[in-house]
Design a protein around this nucleic acid. Structure first.
Lengths: 239, 239
DNA sequence: CGATCGATTGAGCCCTCTCAAGAGAGGTGG
DNA sequence: CCACCTCTCTTGAGAGGGCTCAATCGATCG
């Protein structure tokens, strides 16, 4: 297996404050692995054997309820960690991780975590900040679900995805991985039907262009307005 | 100011793995303070001057939206930390903290955090686990809001409060601090009206006994059933 | 070129919100 | 100790946003 180039990951938040030698030592314990599109990286409830750093691709973290419903926890972008069960005191993964695109990860065996943290305490403080950010983001989600209508929540979700994983095109910004109506529904607490209806509406108004697992924001600024004020007048156009 | 007795807090998760001397050193940097009922401990957006450990009483953490709506983030019980802005990389408090009962806290000046963590790395790993738990709990909340009806969400919320801060009475379990219909609405993403209607219904069925900012669960087991299956009548399946 | 998975769309309903009073409980000041 | 005032809780009526149920269409892949 090829060695990971330290310079590729040195700038990541996880490794803030580390010198090249420390980095080498940490990376030495990791193995890299490739997961093809739609493959499972780990499943909820499984023994947490490893923790991960995404190098390339995109990973969806989701949770399954006892009743069998799924919700999307987040989409992981390159440079982010995931599967940190051990760090937060869990023996088992609290969620599923699925590669939504061909993806490459670094994986450390879970038992390496306590050892690495003991030697490099900055790993813990860096991770604390990461987990703290995720907590803030999740609170934002709770607030949105409590106070906003579905259309606004979808607008916020798509803008976030675009900012995080948007690819600039001439005609707008495309979300850079396959994402279905169902996925968006599971991110926003609604049904795929409602998402479909709303996106159809936006498409007719020229705000987005979308297809099978593909969404392009054509008028991001107008979508920001939708997200912020919610109901904007102007429905009385041509029909 | 009286010195804090180390033995009172030694068993807390925050201090797991510390000896008496380390504990003394950490506690030496804290001051204790008393906040009367309904007083503000800190406000959202304020400079994060301190972080806290609740010794006695109850604290409500809430967030205010740009539109002025409030949601309850959580209720803090004795032994828990709050106001950890600095630890998760924030300069300002992301929420409001209000004493809902006469409360006593230990407060450390924020600048002490990096110094203490440098000397006692276990503080960081202990806090990482705490923040991780809160992240899990917040995800649970998202899942409930996505998949359950209001009545089930209220049932879950009250059961959680009862477990966390319940006082056993002959007639049931009382939530051990003042809590209004509005508070419950802000925990579950609904309105005070709907909470009031649902609690009235439960009261008629003998499940709860409630009054002004006071709730007693008289039939916790039946409320568990409500929380889990939701609808207990009719709804025959017959596949 | 057929099969499968995702997207679209209509109809109808109902859970929950909004709007609107009003009643009860506690606290406070005279 | 009583009167008043404020905060909380209750309850009704009506409306509507979003869900459920049910088909059909369209695109991607083997």
């Amino acid at each position: 297996m090829a060695k990971v180039d330290a310079s590729l990951v040195a700038h990541l938040p996880l490794f803030a404050g580390f010198g090249p030698e420390d980095l080498e030592e940490i990376l030495r314990e990791a193995r890299s692995a490739r997961y093809p599109k739609n493959s499972t990286i780990f499943a909820q409830g499984e023994d947490a054997h490893s923790f991960f750093l995404l190098l390339h691709g995109h990973v969806r973290a989701s949770k399954t309820t006892p009743a069998g419903e799924q919700i999307v926890v987040r989409y992981v972008s390159p440079g982010e960690t995931f599967g940190l069960a051990m760090a937060i005191g869990l023996q088992h993964y609290p969620a599923n991780a699925t590669a939504v695109d061909d993806s490459v990860v670094l994986a450390w065996p879970t038992p390496a975590w306590p050892r690495l943290v003991a030697k490099f305490p900055a790993l813990a403080t860096n991770t604390l900040q990461t987990v703290g950010s995720r907590l803030q983001e999740t609170h934002t989600r709770v607030i949105e679900m409590s106070t906003q209508q579905v259309e606004q929540r979808i607008a916020h979700a798509l803008l976030r995805l675009a900012k995080q994983s948007g690819r600039k095109l001439d005609r707008g910004v495309q979300i850079d991985f396959p994402i279905s109506r169902q996925d968006i529904a599971q991110m926003t607490g609604t049904t795929l039907h409602t998402v479909s209806r709303i996106l159809s509406g936006w498409e007719q108004r020229g705000l987005v262009e979308s297809g099978r697992q593909r969404i392009i924001l054509r008028e991001p600024h107008k979508i920001v307005l939708l997200a912020e004020q919610g109901i904007d007048e102007g429905r009385s156009s041509g029909d």
